[in-house]
């Protein structure tokens, strides 16, 4: 079986495989160039960009919790102008797709960002409407149905060619509702989940372990929750769903694909093993070979009975 087809489509983007990197865990890609061949990735999602540079939160910004970590980076980033000048040229040299994650404090911020990025020839953006860290930031968009609908529609109107991915917040009680809103308002795809707001306390000092008090939980600890949400979303919408949350290896990635994700993003897993994405691509390939499945599309949504491949254990 040399003719394995791993390619998937996310809106107008054609990815050579479904393995992407999660925003905020992969810098602007150069950080990983010593460890892996970036050209093998399905797509790279860069650190969230705002209109103006953001300084981020005071330390400590991260701490470890069982099977996971909390972060309150505070969306530190170089801002749109510096991104275009200093980071984009390197990304353009790569033979892989990249997606610019964006964040703002108002609809007009998101609109300006998407328009400038489209004008600069960027093919795809991911709207971070769910970051739990910044008090005035995305949280209100991602958890309020009317505001989310308005935000996505406005971005869609102002940037019509770009592939628009909406990254959903897990901080809602009804994921299918928000997935549907994202689809109906013009998103080409949805990605989920962002981190889950959480807290860790130092019992010796009686202080929170992060200076920001709360932070976003990521890593293997959130995987079962993410998987359930991806499954719910994938049953609800027709646009592609990108699964994120605690993916450490190929088995985790395959679980998400079987639950209905068309592609997956690796976040915290990159910190533990900077070669995780490549190991996952290789692992998916050998899984497909072992199962005698020649097209990755044949496992997507497999748990819903859509699987056309041979799934007996041979």
């Amino acid at each position: 079986m040399d003719n394995l087809n791993l390619s998937v489509n996310i809106g107008k983007l054609k990815l050579k495989n479904p393995v992407m990197t999660a925003s905020g865990t992969f810098g602007y890609a150069r950080e990983y160039s010593e460890f892996i061949d970036l050209n093998r990735l399905g797509a790279i999602v860069v650190k969230g960009i705002s209109l103006k540079p953001m300084e981020g939160n005071p330390p400590p910004r991260i701490c470890e919790t069982p099977c996971g970590m909390l972060n309150a980076i505070g969306l530190q980033n170089v801002g749109l102008k510096n991104f275009l000048k200093e980071k984009l040229p390197f990304l353009k040299t790569l033979n892989t797709k990249f997606i610019v994650n964006i964040l703002g404090n108002s609809i007009s911020d998101y609109v300006k960002l998407s328009k400038s990025l489209e004008d600069s020839g960027i093919e795809a953006i991911e709207l971070n409407v769910s970051c739990p860290n910044v008090k005035k930031g995305g949280i209100s968009f991602g958890t309020n149905d009317k505001m989310l609908a308005k935000l996505i529609s406005k971005v869609r109107q102002s940037a019509q060619r770009i592939t628009l991915i909406t990254k959903l917040s897990p901080n809602v009680s009804n994921i299918p509702l928000f997935a549907k809103i994202a689809e109906d308002s013009g998103s080409d795809a949805i990605s989920l989940i962002n981190t889950i707001p959480a807290l860790a306390v130092d019992i010796e000092t009686w202080k929170p372990r992060l200076a920001n008090i709360t932070g976003g939980l990521s890593g293997p600890a959130i995987k079962p929750i993410a998987l359930r949400m991806v499954w719910e979303a994938a049953k609800t919408v027709k646009i592609p769903v990108i699964g994120i949350g605690g993916i450490m290896n190929a088995n985790d990635a395959i679980e998400f694909l079987l639950a209905g994700a068309t592609a997956i993003q690796v976040g915290t897993g990159n910190f533990v093993n900077p070669c995780a994405t490549i190991d996952i691509i290789d692992g998916i390939e050998s899984y497909l070979k072992r199962k005698s499945i020649d097209d990755i599309k044949n496992i997507i949504g497999g748990i819903n009975g859509n699987c056309t491949g041979d799934n007996s254990d041979n």
């Binding site: 905020g24 950080e31 991260i62 701490c63 980076i73 530190q76 910190f271």
Partner: peptide, 10 residues
Amino acid sequence: NMACGFGACL
């Protein structure tokens, strides 16, 4: 406190 060690997590 460090998660990655190589500049990616901030």
